[in-house]
Amino acid sequence: MSAAGHAFRDNLTMVRRSLLHARRYPSLTLNVLLTPVMLLLLFVYVFGNAMSAGITGGHADRAEYVAYLVPGVLLMTVGMISLGTAVSVATDMTEGIMARFRTMAISRPSVLVGHVIGSVIQTLLALVLILGIALAIGFRPHATPLDWLAAAGLMALVSLSLTWIAVGIGLVSPNAEGASNLGMPLTLLPLLSSAFVPVGTMPDGFRWFAEYQPFSPAIEALRGLLLGTHVGTRNAVLAVAWSLGLSLLGYLWSKARFNREPRR
């Protein structure tokens, strides 16, 4: 087998390892999902009327707010699961098996690729779950099959980018607690985005930040795809550019960190 073939097989092996971990210990991923599910229910059933009245300028319409909220919650879920990845990478690095991997003639990035691809697969499964809950509480998307495909691609791409950043965070953190603290922006950024309210309703400084930060363009694009409204070229370009940029940055950062010598 060629070197590329070997590297491919190593990646596959490491993805299997990551999924095996997830399957053995599903509680880790399921715990992470509690927060977006709770936020979804809270904002729809408790704040729903007030939020929709604020957005539509007068009449309260909870169903309309569900439609507005779900794309934001979906991408918030992506962020939360990536934080889980940061924690599991930090934990994995403290395990003895890491020294073994480093002394074997394997493709080194495969150790990280396994975490990333495994995490993206878990994220997509989790999104199906969240989407199921959303449908159950009255979310009615108007998407064509092509829109669904594009939406899935977008979510996978955002997941890929946030997960690579999360892997970097996991690698620079000395332990799980450190990774959890350092990775906080991955879960906090959606709060300052267009996930819950349109950026137009925010004060000036926040609005500028909320409009251009990675989550908002992706949320807006996803909203367009799922609700069958206008996606907007600017949102689409910004969302893809952010994702590709963060993926590349996260990959290079993680690779450099992983190749650094382990300190004693």
Binding site: L20, Y25, I97, A99
Partner: peptide, 11 residues
Amino acid sequence: TGQFSAVDGLI
């Protein structure tokens, strides 16, 4: 085979 066991405890 290092001093600290290099096995994956989760599997």
